[in-house]
């Protein structure tokens, strides 16, 4: 039973789920407020943007790419939404501006990487600089602060006390991503490009188009994240998005999506995001200095890369064998 489940869901996802549960148990035993509905809500709400950005990065990593400028795309989209809200535009229209700006920036990044034939890591470090300066120029030295709360009313409302309404969008996005990845030719092409680009090309896959499309998906999801960012924080400061890329890449890689491409796990990404945000929250709750939080994210990322495949797979084979043996006995 467990072995079958492990096979179906995947070893990495089960390991992560176990880590999430273990972390929750430890924090709950150290602090009585950890499992309070308000705190559960806080963890889930603080995961909102990372859930979407991580989902987009899963597509990018699946083709063997990477994007370290995702936080800046979120920033530029957030500035667009913020300015529209300030100009009195209808909040639903302003919310739409986020994904549109993100899509455009993603298309730009993808084009630079693919048509410029620049390694993605180098290209997106360059674009990070370009986008960050764009944020400076757009904000002109003054923060967008105290924006109208119209978007907050739509997206920060709670379902069942602990889940923000923004999660309706997130669930739909993950479901759509699942269908695209597993049930459409495009999804197959994505993974094929990530696995072996040359072979995919020879098999007639439009490799360039597929790669640019992956960055467009990621950009659009960063834009949706920007909408929720504005709903949650109602301000855009100069350093917007500066910690996003590390958290998001760590979450996706933790989730079992291969940094080398060809392998994607949506459930893994969601669990990775949850684990990172939960650790950050739990450390503050139990009173550990917040200075250590980036260290934890960094170490998790390194651990995930080190453990990649071998150890985890081996553990679950043995675990599966054990369960099977006990059942036959």
């Amino acid at each position: 039973m467990l072995a079958k489940l492990a096979q179906r869901i995947g070893g990495r996802e089960l390991t992560l789920l176990a880590a999430v549960v273990a972390a929750a148990v430890v924090f709950a035993s150290l602090s009585p407020v950890f499992l309070h509905p308000n705190n559960v809500y806080a963890i889930i709400r603080n995961s909102t943007e990372l859930m979407l950005i991580g989902l987009g990065l899963t597509f990018v990593l699946a083709i063997g790419g990477i994007d370290v400028s995702v936080g800046m795309i979120l920033g530029i989209a957030a500035i667009a939404i913020g300015n529209l809200l300030l100009a009195g535009v209808d909040p639903w229209l302003a919310a739409l501006a986020g994904p549109l700006v993100g899509l455009a920036l993603g298309a730009f990044s993808g084009t630079v990487i693919v048509l410029g034939r620049i390694p993605a890591i180098v290209a997106t470090i360059g674009l990070l600089g370009v986008y960050r300066t764009t944020i400076f120029a757009l904000l002109g030295g003054s923060w967008l602060s105290g924006l109208p709360s119209s978007l907050s009313e739509i997206f920060a409302a709670r379902i069942a006390g602990v889940i923000p309404t923004s999660y309706i969008v997130i669930v739909v996005a993950y479901a759509a991503a699942f269908v695209v990845l597993r049930r459409t030719p495009f999804g197959l092409h994505l993974l094929a490009v990530g696995n072996a680009e040359e072979r995919a090309r020879l098999s007639g896959v439009a490799v360039r188009k597929v790669r640019i499309a992956a960055y467009m998906v990621s950009g659009a999801l960063c834009g949706i994240a920007a909408t929720f960012y504005i709903a949650n924080y109602r301000n855009v400061e100069m350093t917007v998005g500066s910690t996003v890329a590390l958290d998001a890449i760590a979450a996706v890689v933790l989730g079992g999506t291969s940094i080398l491409g060809g392998k994607a796990s949506l459930l893994g990404t969601a669990l990775g995001v949850l684990l990172i945000r939960m650790l950050q929250n739990g450390f503050t709750i139990v009173g550990l200095p917040s200075l250590w939080q980036p260290v934890v994210t960094g170490v998790l990322l390194l651990l995930a890369l080190t453990l990649e495949r071998a150890a985890v797979a081996g553990l679950f084979r043995r675990l599966g064998g054990l369960v099977a043996a006990r059942r036959t006995a």
Binding site: A42, Y229, N232, Y233, E237, N281, P289
Partner: peptide, 13 residues
Amino acid sequence: QFAGGSSDRAAQL
């Protein structure tokens, strides 16, 4: 608690 320069981290903390 230290948030660095990031206002969303400050809000979370």
